[in-house]
């Protein structure tokens, strides 16, 4: 996993609530057996008419040149529904390093963190402040300080991040390395449990 310390970038606004993982990456694209290449199908059915890459829907934000950046900003309950980690892979592969929302679904949040995509939880009010910004505005996210700042106004919010997960993100460690290092303890647990 890639280490993640700071992000300063413009953002892509998606002011829609309850964005489920079927929208992030539809089921028909889950037939791959590797983690790569999901970015081109990110939000596939919101991006294209009739599943045709030659027919982009002009209203959808990823098809507009106005907005770009490493940060996706979305309405509350982002990532609900299916547990498919392909959703996190698609966001990462497309180039997003962080998703900002007022509320995340639990499994998506874990999947994102396990792939070095940072879920940033802000208040509904702060989220609306971001949606009100112009396309040229930037956001700064500091993982160590657990803060997100609207650079134009200086408005800042802190976000929750489990200290263990923070260490993993800052250093690019993953949980599997950690668990493998605990094998002796796990074997002892098995013996005691019987």
């Amino acid at each position: 996993m890639q280490a993640l310390q700071q992000i300063k970038s413009s953002f892509v606004p998606l002011p829609i609530e309850n964005v489920d993982t079927d929208q992030i990456i539809p089921a028909r694209f889950l037939k791959a057996t590797t983690r790569d290449g999901f970015g081109k199908n990110l939000f596939r059915d919101w991006r294209y008419e009739q599943d045709d890459e030659l027919k982009p829907k002009p209203d959808f934000v990823l098809n507009q040149t106005t907005f770009s950046g490493d940060i996706l900003v979305a309405g509350k309950n982002f990532g609900c529904g299916s547990s498919r980690e392909h959703a996190a892979w698609a966001l990462l592969d497309y180039g997003f390093k962080a998703v900002v929302s007022s509320f995340f679904a639990d499994i998506f949040k874990n999947n994102a963190l396990n792939n070095g995509v940072l879920p940033v939880i802000v208040s509904e009010n702060f989220l609306q402040q971001i949606f009100a910004l112009s396309a040229s505005d930037t956001l700064s996210i500091d993982v160590a300080a657990q803060t997100i700042t609207i650079d134009a106004t200086g408005a800042q919010a802190s976000f929750e991040l489990n200290p263990y997960k923070k260490t993993c993100l800052l250093n690019g460690y993953d949980d599997i390395d950690f668990l493998i290092s605990r094998k002796a303890t796990i074997e002892k647990f098995e013996l005691e449990k019987g």
Partner: peptide, 14 residues
């Protein structure tokens, strides 16, 4: 769970 967690269970049963 997600696929990274499937891998965790494969590797450690945890």
């Amino acid at each position: 769970i997600g696929t990274s967690e499937v891998e965790m269970v494969f590797a450690s049963q945890c």
